[in-house]
Design a protein around this nucleic acid. Structure first.
Lengths: 200, 200
DNA sequence: TCCTCTCTGTAGCACCTGCTACATGCATGA
DNA sequence: TCATGCATGTAGCAGGTGCTACAGAGAGGA
């Protein structure tokens, strides 16, 4: 019972470190000072073991989402803030896990795409809400949130893989500038938008 | 000799269809009406087989890059054009291959990151040049090109995996609008920029 | 005709995979 | 004291992996 939850934590740590795709029970068990026999005893199967580790990952990620500080005033600054968080070690690990899950989902969508969506959930909702707070019209917020998530994904991937990591940083800066230079909507949707498009 | 090049083509087709990550010689050989024995005879090892298939993929990709038609006049339209190409079957296959390679590169950078970079090359260079033609100052073009590539990657990934494929489309439209609403640079870098920010 | 060289089929190697049968130690409750 | 149930180690299963040893088939040149 409790041992199982404890093992799930360690399994997740191992997965964040070594990736989900090549995961094999025996090396995993060795790193956790157990045997594959014991892992299967506690979890029943590899599939359930992975499932519990992923559920735990989602809970950890949801708990780590924090609203930005008061110095974040524009959408561009928000994006820079998210980028900085994504480049921290836990952010990189989460990105790698997300990437592994995406690849698995392209191979077996029925089995994995739910997990991808679930891991993304803790970011998408708060981001939409946050954008509205920054004066983005509610009608545009979902698409803009998805754009930001997608761009952060793509650039994180680039930075993860490419030899020249400064390239992704420069691209993100261009993105943030682009967002802050965005013209204010003509309509009167927004409430107290504290947008401040001071560029450069 | 010739048989080997012919096999490389078929191997690449198979890899584009089934992914690079779980690639196994026996199912591959069966699909090609040969045996693993023969594949190893012609290529020497699995590693070299994959290497030749990837080199071929790069050549194919480079050959498929074509300048956009005359109806593409703004950066936003260019991005929409690239997006449409990426959603075609070969574009999706290339994206999946790029994704698999990225995952492999996070696990063994020394072995794979070169291949990722090489596969990306045929797009990055022409995109930079294309941006300059559209009036983007030469100093900003590289970062903007990387931003566009990264965003296309991230949104393609989203669309590949997510149940709701319209989400990525909406996000890309927001991106294109954002690019076309971009303020013209104050400096006088650009040559004949035919920018025409007619939005909506 | 014989020899050699290129190609290919069969069988197998050592190793890895998830998973399981069996036996055992150990603590707890009747 | 005995029995029950939980936890764990050992050994092994069937199937997969890349790769190889060996034997042949067939074509071409001497």
């Amino acid at each position: 019972m409790d041992r199982r939850a404890e093992l799930a934590e360690q399994v997740l740590d191992y997965v964040l470190e070594h990736g989900l795709i090549g995961l094999s029970l025996r090396p995993l068990a060795a790193a956790l000072h157990t045997s594959d026999r014991m892992l299967l005893y506690h979890f029943g199967s590899k599939e359930r073991l992975v499932g519990e580790a992923l559920a735990l990952a989602q809970r950890r990620l949801a708990a780590s989402v924090a609203p930005p500080g008061p110095d974040v005033r524009t959408v561009g600054q928000l994006v820079r803030h998210l980028w900085a968080e994504l480049q921290s070690p836990p952010g990189i690990q989460a990105t790698r896990l997300y990437l592994d899950l995406s690849v698995l989902a392209t191979k077996e969508p029925a089995r994995w795409s739910g997990a991808v969506e679930r891991l993304r959930g803790p970011w998408r909702g708060p981001l939409r809400d946050g954008l509205v707070l920054f004066g983005v019209p509610a009608a545009e917020a979902p698409a803009l949130a998805d754009l930001i998530l997608g761009t952060l994904d793509g650039l994180s991937l680039d930075r993860l893989v490419a030899e020249d990591s400064a390239r992704a940083d420069a691209a993100l800066t261009a993105f943030a500038d682009l967002l802050d230079a965005r013209p204010l909507p003509a309509g009167d949707h927004g409430g107290d938008h504290r947008e401040n498009p001071a560029r450069t």
